[in-house]
Each structure stands twice: as C-alpha cells, then as structure tokens.
Nucleic acid binder design. Structure first.
Lengths: 158, 158
DNA sequence: CGCATAACCGACTGCTTCAGTAGGATTTGA
DNA sequence: TCAAATCCTACTGAAGCAGTCGGTTATGCG
C-alpha cells in the first residue's frame, strides 16, 4: 500500500469541507458522522492540515473548520504531504527544493545507484498525479460525477 | 515512503544479475558483498523473485541465481510487485484483472467515494512509471549513464 | 567418500508506524 | 453558567519492517 488511511481519511475530510457552500465552519463531529469515521482520530488528522495552513479553525460553540483557500486553489500534493509526510518512493531518496535528487548511497560501490532512474520516474508519476488534481475536482466528482454509474441521466461522461 | 527497502534491495539484486554477461549463475553472497547488503536478508527477497518466476536458481557448489528472461523483457512493475506485494495506493483500492477499480466503501454514504478519482490517477502514474521501465535500462544506467555527471573523467577514486 | 559451497526454509526479535482511544484543558456562543 | 467545540498529550494493541539464526538439502570437486 502506497498510502495509509491518514491520506484517505484526510482527503475525505477536505472534500467534506469543500462541499460546504458558505464560509461558515463545519464541526468535526458532523464530518465524522457523515463520513463514518472516528472523531478522535480525525482530530489528529485535521491538526496536521491546520499546521500546514490548509484549513482554519474557529473554536468554541458553533465552531469548526473551513478551507483556508478556495478548493480550486488547493492541489492534492500538499494535502497528502501534510497528512503523510514527505512523499518519496524510498528512504534513501530526497528531493531538494531546487529539484535535485539526492541518493544516500550514491557512491556506494563501483557504479552509480542502479535504482535512481526508477525512483525518479515513480516520483514524477506520483507528483504529477497529485499536483494535477485539485480539491475542487474531487468535490465535483463526489457530488455527481462519481455517481454517474449509479444515477441515470446527466450525460457528462467526460 | 512509498516503498520499503525490499523493493530497493530487490531491484538492486536484479540489476546485479542483469550485469552478468553469460548465463552462468551468480551466488547471493557475491551480490551481497558487491552491493553491501545483508546476505540473509537477500535470501528472503530472492525467494520472492523466484516464486514470481523472475529468477532461476541452481543449487549446490558453484550455484547461484540468474535471470529467468533477458533483461529487456523484464519490466519493473512485476519486479516491484513480487517484492512488495500488490501495488495499490490505498487499502480500499483493488484493481480487477479486467482493469475495473473496486472501492470497498463505494456506497458508504450519500455520495460516491470522493477519493476514487485521486487514487486512480496515482495508481496510473505509478504503474506507468514502473511498467515503462525495463531492467535492461537500469543495468545500462548503472553501468555508465548514471555515472556521467559524477565522474569528471577516469581519474575518480572508485 | 567427504567436504566446502550454496540454495532453501522457518522461527524469532527489536523497532517503528498505524489506527484508534482516553482524558483532559481551553475557548466561545447562548 | 452550560454545552459545544477545538486543542493537546499520553497511551495501546496490532502489524509490518529489517534483519538474524540455525538448520536442511543439493551439488561440484579433490
């Protein structure tokens, strides 16, 4: 498994917030009930999202969470990274801010790290998929698009 | 981390076998020494590769392992899958042989699984990267291509 | 034959992460 | 003041990771 349920639950949480039309916050317990996820576990996840600046919180009664930015401007790479930590295919694999790839055992033996080419490609594939998806897409997909197979009509088979 | 060292070590093992020019087998201890990896751990990994039909073994003295097929015909998706098990972005995510995607909690609540679109894209990105890479490429890369930027000329302390 | 070499196999271990629980403290609207 | 909510730390059982260990079987060679 590439990702744990932290990413799964966390993304679903974000989508739930993205569904909220106005700017009033949604309480975690409401999300937990709607998504059938354990509330106390969601607390941990939302804390990560908040620390990453993806959601804002309002405390006290009638409080809750809302997206810090419009869903169209939130790409899933930052969401998943906030939840799961740095995304790399391998322990020895680090990407610097400038985009250079470092490999811990670069000059291990007689030849260059044989796997670097592979992990670089995998990394690229994942990053492209995540960064190329916005939260707004997922909200729309879950609202109607994903239901197409179940609900008739709506000829928007993209 | 997307993958564990099982994939890392296992791929390096495969590359080491792919470097062998003739068809005579390479002993695990030789690979372990060359790659500086624990021999007894490699035994577990090579067992997976053998069960997957990727390498063949000859027992007894002067025995060892060799690739079951030429390196050009081995793509890395089957290698990594043999080592890590089924590759899926998420626990709830299963792909049938026909390519259909199943999601455990498909009809959980009021709407379709919000994350399905995302995981499908991620899955596609990873699969494409792995299936689009052959073992022969990695062998070649590690033999010379990967060294180009690191080694100025020949005088490098190898 | 006998021995070194090497593949094979299963059990075990320390460690870390995962998934979730528990209990409380703090803030805020009514 | 009370209830609803965020916030925070600590804890726990289970699982997987990375690796070790001991032993069994098969084989080439002197």
């Amino acid at each position: 498994m590439l990702f744990s349920t932290k990413a799964e639950y966390g993304v679903r949480l974000m989508v739930a917030l993205g569904r909220q039309p106005g700017s009033e916050p949604v309480s975690l317990s409401a999300v937990a009930e709607a998504e059938r996820l354990p509330l106390s576990y969601l607390e941990h996840l939302v804390a990560r999202l908040r620390r990453a600046g993806l959601v804002t919180s309002t405390r006290g009664a009638h409080g809750g969470y809302s997206l810090a930015r419009p869903a169209e401007e939130i790409t899933l790479d930052v969401v998943v990274e906030a939840l799961e930590g740095q995304i790399a295919p391998m322990e020895c694999f680090h990407e610097t801010p400038e985009g250079k790839v470092l490999c811990s055992h670069e000059s291990d033996g007689d030849h260059a790290c044989a796997t670097k080419l592979l992990w670089t490609r995998v990394q690229g594939g994942v990053t492209k998929a995540l960064a190329g998806t916005t939260l707004a897409e997922l909200v729309e997909f879950s609202a109607g698009g994903g239901r197409e197979k179940a609900a008739p009509a709506l000829g928007s088979a993209a």
